[in-house]
């Protein structure tokens, strides 16, 4: 794209029939030919990404060869389980609900997390709720450092910047959730000789919005090449229920409701999509700015943040490295 070209959100428009057909053919090849497995396990959160992956796997392998797994825990929204049930019903697919709270309690996930929160909010305890949020990064060259938003039992809230120890303690503890889910997914995959299908979209995959050996772990990732808005286009084509298509993306990880924008991307996902596309395709910030309703300097900041997160995601993406090469035929 040459400098000065008019950019609109249409640059992310796809032909959903062609895209779906291509993904379906690749799922068939990967599951049947390369891995020689009989079906796919999909952890379904009731969100758009996992639902689209479930629909694609059902189309590729047959409804009777997908197994949907719901893994609620103490902090999950009840909507997640209800919408997961809607996916199973829509596909007439087998499913199981595994409450992972006992696993998490056994690992002291909640205790460890609360201990970390108390490093910055000493009175945090029973009856309190919290989430972690990022500052506004558009209007100054700020770092993506988190604050805790804590709601006390009387409903009052306060926001406190996290110390490094508190942040690391909270993240390390809550990462048990994604890892426990993956452990259960692989239990069913082993039981049925299925693959585990991962559900990241391109934003999440590129920017490292996943837990290593947690939701980042899978045998295939059918929509990792699609921007979030393209996943929505595919969802419409595949007939994903309206309620799931309208649900705002959530992390469903903290006791206070938390959007993905607050937690990681700092921008609404449709704008983040365009910024990532612009960065990937060398679109000058001045050309992209009108399409995202930002000024040139703000787009430059987003490009810089994308690059910084991408560098930090390198470790998350990396498979175990060998210090000497080994020939495996």
């Amino acid at each position: 794209m040459s400098a000065g070209s008019v950019v609109t959100a249409d640059i992310l428009r796809i032909d959903p029939v062609m895209v779906a057909d291509r993904i379906v053919a690749n799922i068939q090849d990967i599951v049947g030919n390369r891995f020689k497995r009989k079906g796919a396990v999909i952890g379904v959160s009731g969100g758009i990404d996992s639902t689209v992956v479930a629909f694609l796997c059902a189309r590729a392998l047959g409804n009777d060869r997908v197994f949907l797994l719901f893994t609620p825990e103490t902090d999950s929204s009840p909507d997640s389980l209800r919408l997961g049930g809607l996916v199973a019903e829509s596909l007439n697919a087998r499913s199981a609900t595994e409450d992972i709270s006992p696993i998490l309690k056994g690992a002291r996930c909640y205790e460890r997390r609360d201990e970390a929160v108390r490093l910055v909010v000493p009175d945090y305890g029973d009856g309190y709720k919290f989430k972690i949020v990022l500052p506004n990064l558009l209007d100054a060259n700020r770092y993506s450092i988190f604050s805790a938003v804590v709601q006390s039992p009387d409903g009052s809230t306060k926001q406190v910047r996290l110390s490094a120890a508190a942040y690391l303690g909270i993240v390390a503890a809550t990462n048990f959730k994604q890892r426990a889910r993956k452990m259960i997914e692989y239990y069913y995959a082993d039981l049925m000789q299925y693959v585990v299908a991962g559900t990241p979209n391109r934003l999440e995959y590129d920017q490292g919005f996943f837990v290593k050996n947690g939701d980042g772990s899978a045998d295939l990732k059918p929509i990792a090449h699609l921007y979030k808005s393209q996943v929505y286009q595919l969802a419409a084509y595949l007939g994903v229920p309206d309620e799931i298509r309208r649900r705002p993306p959530t992390t469903d990880t903290y006791s206070l409701e938390q959007s993905q924008e607050e937690f990681y991307f700092t921008l609404p996902l449709e704008k983040m999509d365009l910024c990532l596309y612009g960065k990937n395709n060398g679109i000058p910030p001045a050309d992209l700015a009108p399409a995202v309703g930002m000024d040139e300097q703000q787009v430059e900041r987003m490009y810089r943040m994308i690059e910084a997160k991408r560098k930090m995601a390198h470790y998350l993406h990396s498979a175990p490295l060998l210090v000497e090469p080994i020939e495996v035929s």
Partner: peptide, 17 residues
């Protein structure tokens, strides 16, 4: 620190400490 991948946001928190 940012552009050269020396510190991430956690590193900045540790620097502040």
């Amino acid at each position: 620190f940012l552009d050269d991948g020396i510190l991430d946001s956690t590193g900045i928190l540790q620097l502040i400490t």
